[in-house]
Nucleic acid binder design. Structure first.
Length: 553
RNA sequence: GCGGGUGUAGCUCAGUGGUAGAGCGCCACGUUGCCAACGUGGCUGUCGAGGGUUCGAAUCCCUUCACCCGCUCCA
């Protein structure tokens, strides 16, 4: 086992042992892709969410132009429902993408829409070249040649693929005996006779499987198939469909962002890597609406702003990277997309896992909900009868800029962060094994979570040095004062003082406060720093202030 | 989805057909009194789940669930 896997195993073990994360429904054997946060994990994740909300919305100054931004802007929050009108997902594209039957080709590793593959029966001598001086073979075969190409190209593609399969040169194409008509692959009873569009041999396609990325549910107690609804696969659509409501009700003007934190659900094929790929996960998303001619600048601003957010909370720059997507990866309408990625310990060295995607989405989303589902060229997608494949709301989601006296559909910049992934990254980043001296001065290894003070689940721990001489009473008084000040602090009088320090190092408590013999004389206590192990004496009446100042870090 | 591995106390693991164990942790008491592993005592187990073979199964067989690794897939 490599060093990296070891580290991740230790982090997972620590998470379970100290109550950060448990497998969901563990007493029943667990359920794949779902996780529960324990008492400390809940505090940690709450701190991640609260920091995001405070930094993006709560403490945002909409009067002043922030550094690096094209102008001042507003930020507002919403909380939309998890179940939305089914048409939302049809227009967003999620429905088509993930409800269809798909076949996989085990040779080419490509995946095809089952209803899009068509082909025709062909019979000919299949020639194979001889190997090592052995003569080649020839065998009469009848197979179903397939292609994805539609329209006029279908026939030509079938000929080319058949020539390739039978090992014939183009001039011998008349040797292929075509039978029946071109028909959909769906008509075939047996896929083992079919040659997949990008395969060199027969029978490489799996049985068609329905892909349901979205969790299906039913509306109404008597609901049948007609009442199918979906748990949202992303929070973004809740913000797009409320764009007009927000504009009409809250006096915001462009540019502004709508923000939301909430659960989303995806039937991941392979949930893996602890909470990294879960089927139920929490997103922290911003949909930032701006003028089309300013969208590139806003994209750049958000990309940098969001990257800086992670570093400000303690993610080291060598573990974090901003990866711009290549031009080929981008949708036609997008100016850019960047992933903010972290080098998780469960990944191979040099690999990074996505924490957040910052995407320039143009006017794709608002227009989709106006007109209907758009294709990759931003054209309304039509069905075989020339009608919109999925009709939009028909509502006007354009914006009137009363300064410029122009009407337009705003462009969108979407910084979409994973709350669970961020929490996991902060955990991995905090996990440290260093050395600390024992009571004899010998250096011993110490496990410590070096959380940023804003994220630490427990902000301080208060100890009486010994369980007598009035120390517990004084410590308890300090504990209550902190609690009343709204700080999550622990009181611990159990075991040797060194052990208590280590217990709190392991859960990342930044400060330990100890009431000792000197406290009764001069009303001071010691404050011990988690990372430096340094201790200073602080008067009790200045303690809360001192800790609050330090926590702001 | 395929292949390999793992699953025994809160944690780490030993136990390969014959009465379920160790270390750590946790709790109590004592001791020490500012950086974990002092003494004494104590608690803790449907041996992942279900079925089968057997006089007898943690151990052998089948099924299943979960986790880890690799491939595959995927925002």
């Amino acid at each position: 086992m490599s060093q990296t896997e070891n580290t991740m195993d230790q982090i997972v073990a620590l998470c379970k042992r100290r109550g950060f994360l448990f497998q969901s429904s563990e007493i029943y054997g667990g359920v794949n892709g779902f996780w529960d946060y324990g008492p400390l994990g809940t505090e940690l994740k709450r701190n991640v969410r609260n920091s995001w909300w405070a930094d993006m919305i709560g403490r945002h100054d909409e009067i002043t132009c922030p550094e690096g931004a094209p102008s001042a802007y507003s930020m507002v929050g919403i909380e939309s429902s998890i179940i939305m009108h089914p048409q939302v997902w049809k227009c967003s594209g999620h429905y088509d993408l993930f409800h269809d039957f798909m076949v996989d080709c085990t040779e080419s590793k490509k995946r095809y829409r089952f209803d899009h593959v068509k082909g025709r029966w062909a019979e000919a001598e299949k020639k194979t070249r001889g190997v090592d001086g052995q003569p080649g073979t020839s065998e009469k075969m009848k197979v179903f040649i397939t292609t994805m190409d539609a329209g006029e190209e279908t026939e030509q593609q079938l000929v080319e693929k058949a020539l390739k399969f039978f090992g014939l040169k183009a001039k011998y194409k008349d040797q292929i005996d075509w039978q029946d008509e071109i028909m959909p692959l769906e008509k075939l009873d047996d896929l083992t006779q079919a040659v997949a569009p990008d395969a060199s041999r027969v029978g490489t396609m799996t049985e068609p499987r329905e892909f349901n990325l979205m969790f299906k549910t039913t509306l109404g107690a008597l609901g049948g198939a007609e009442d199918a609804a979906f748990l949202r696969p992303e929070t973004a659509q809740g913000m797009f469909v409320n764009f007009k409501n927000v504009v009409d009700s809250s006096r915001v003007k462009l540019p502004f962002g709508i923000c939301q934190i909430g659960k989303s659900f995806r039937n991941e094929i392979t949930p893996r890597n602890f909470t990294f790929r879960s089927r139920e996960f929490e997103q922290m998303e911003i949909e930032f609406f701006c003028r089309p001619d300013e969208s590139a600048k806003w994209y750049e601003y958000w990309r940098n702003r969001r990257f800086a957010w992670y570093t400000s909370l303690g993610i080291g720059s060598d573990k974090l990277q901003l990866r711009e997507h290549h031009k080929e990866e981008l949708a036609h309408y997008s100016v850019g997309t960047a992933d903010i990625e972290y080098a998780f310990p469960f990944l191979s060295p040099g690999e990074f896992g996505e924490l957040e995607g910052v995407a320039h989405r143009g006017d794709f989303d608002l227009r989709s909900h106006m007109e209907g589902k758009l294709d990759g060229d931003l054209k309304l997608q039509l069905d075989e009868n020339g009608q919109p494949k999925h009709r939009g709301s028909g509502k006007d989601l354009s914006y009137f800029d009363d300064q410029a006296r122009e009407r337009f559909v705003p462009h969108v910049i979407e910084p979409s962060a994973g709350a669970d992934r961020a929490t996991l990254a902060f955990l991995c980043e905090a996990y440290t094994i260093d050395e600390a001296p024992n009571d004899k001065g010998e250096m011993q290894s110490r496990t410590v979570l070096k959380f940023h003070p804003r994220l630490a689940p427990v902000k301080a721990a208060i100890f009486p040095l010994i369980k007598k001489e009035g120390m517990p009473e004084t410590a308890a008084k300090i504990y209550r004062e902190f609690r009343e000040a709204g700080l999550n602090v622990d009181y611990d009088q159990q075991g040797a003082i060194g052990r208590r320090y280590r217990r709190h190092d392991e859960i990342g408590t930044p400060y330990c406060i100890t009431v000792d013999g000197q406290t009764a004389e001069d009303q001071t206590v010691t404050v011990r720093d988690r990372d430096s192990l340094e201790q200073v004496r602080v008067p009790i009446n200045k303690l809360t202030e001192e800790i609050l100042t330090r926590l702001k870090g």
